[in-house]
């Protein structure tokens, strides 16, 4: 028998005093030679920037390990914790500095914003792995919404935009067990 889950409620407009923290998007250790930048915009159903979104990333380390490490909230500049939390700015733009995951080439992403009753899950693929079960299950015309693009002319930079609604709507994922 399963206990009934506690329902989600909107994050609302006032989480800014509690959830963002300095260095939240600096997952890569300072000065790490393999650091990459992942950045992009979060937009609403009219293409307007979402200036008060909060993005949380969870990923494997460069060795493929998913054990993570404590210390994300007060980063020591050396430890790769695997987790990052990045608010969008007034242009709806976010920037994550991280290390590429070993193993399956994606970052798990959780998007929070006021106006949503519940956060949204998706994946950011930094490469398109052959035979990936999730990508294979998506309609071809929507698969690209999960693929980060390498930026031409910029070293170690990837771009990944999130469209919450409408044309080019990002694929969001339902992980519920469905009982």
């Amino acid at each position: 028998m399963l206990l009934p889950p506690t329902p989600s409620q909107t994050i609302g407009p006032y989480y800014g005093t509690a959830l963002p923290f300095p260095g939240g998007g600096d997952a890569a250790p300072a000065g790490h030679p393999a650091a990459v930048t992942l950045h992009g915009h979060v937009r609403d159903g009219e293409g307007a920037p979402v200036p008060d979104g909060l993005l949380e990333f969870w990923q494997a380390g460069p060795d493929g390990s998913l054990t993570g490490a404590p210390g994300s909230l007060r980063r020591d500049g050396e430890t790769f914790t695997g987790w990052a939390r990045v608010p969008t700015d007034r242009d709806g733009h976010y920037v994550l500095r991280t290390l590429l995951p070993g193993g399956a080439p994606y970052l798990a992403l959780c998007v929070h914003a006021r106006g949503l009753d519940r956060h949204l899950f998706t994946r950011v693929y930094v490469a398109e792995p052959p035979g990936d079960a999730l990508l294979a299950a998506l309609p071809a015309d929507r698969r690209a919404t999960l693929l980060a693009r390498r930026e031409a002319g910029r070293r170690n930079a990837y771009r990944f935009d999130v469209t919450l609604q409408g044309d080019g709507e990002t694929v969001f994922l339902d992980w519920s067990a469905g009982d």
Partner: peptide, 28 residues
Amino acid sequence: LRAPLRPAVRVPVSVPAAPGTAELTGPV
């Protein structure tokens, strides 16, 4: 204008079964 219009895509059972599925672990 923020809630997606399309239903979230149900993750196929074969995905969580795959080794190294990040979403089955989490930050510490």
